[in-house]
Amino acid sequence: MTDAHGRLPRSFTTPGTSSFVDFLAAHDPSRLTGTFATPLGDVPVPHATTIVALTFDGGVVMAGDRRATAGSMIASRQIEKVFPADDSSAIGIAGTAGLAIELVRLFQLELEHYEKIEGTPLSLDGKANRLATMVRGSLGLAMQGLAVIPLFCGYDESRGTGRIFSYDVTGGRYEETEHHAIGSGSVFARGSLKKLWQPGLDRDQAVRAAVTALVDAADDDSATGGPDALRRIWPVVAVVGPEGYQAVSQAELAEVAAAVEESRRQAGGRHP
Rank of each mutant, 00 (worst) to 15 (best):
G34H: 00
G34F: 00
F36G: 06
T38G: 07
P39R: 09
P39W: 04
P39V: 10
P39Q: 10
T50C: 11
V52G: 02
A53C: 15
A53H: 01
A53F: 11
T55G: 07
D57W: 07
G59L: 05
V61K: 02
V61E: 01
V61I: 15
M62E: 03
M62F: 13
G64L: 02
G64W: 00
D65E: 15
R66D: 10
R67A: 03
A68S: 10
A68E: 11
T69D: 04
G71P: 14
G71S: 12
G71Y: 03
S72N: 15
A75L: 12
Q78S: 15
Q78Y: 09
E80G: 12
K81F: 05
F83A: 03
F83C: 11
D86E: 11
D87V: 10
D87Q: 10
S88L: 04
A90H: 03
G92H: 02
G92M: 06
I93L: 15
I93E: 00
I93D: 00
A94M: 10
A97Y: 04
G98I: 08
E102V: 07
V104I: 14
V104E: 02
F107G: 10
L109Y: 07
E110M: 11
L111Q: 04
E112V: 08
Y114G: 04
I117T: 12
E118N: 13
T120Y: 12
P121N: 15
S123W: 13
S123R: 12
L124G: 05
L124N: 05
L124S: 06
K127D: 03
N129V: 08
N129Y: 11
N129W: 09
L131T: 00
L131E: 02
A132V: 08
T133V: 15
M134K: 05
V135M: 07
V135E: 03
S138W: 08
L139P: 11
L139C: 04
L141Y: 05
A142E: 04
M143C: 14
G145T: 12
L146C: 08
V148R: 00
I149Q: 07
L151P: 01
F152R: 07
F152W: 09
E157W: 12
S158L: 11
G160W: 14
T161R: 10
G162A: 07
G162C: 09
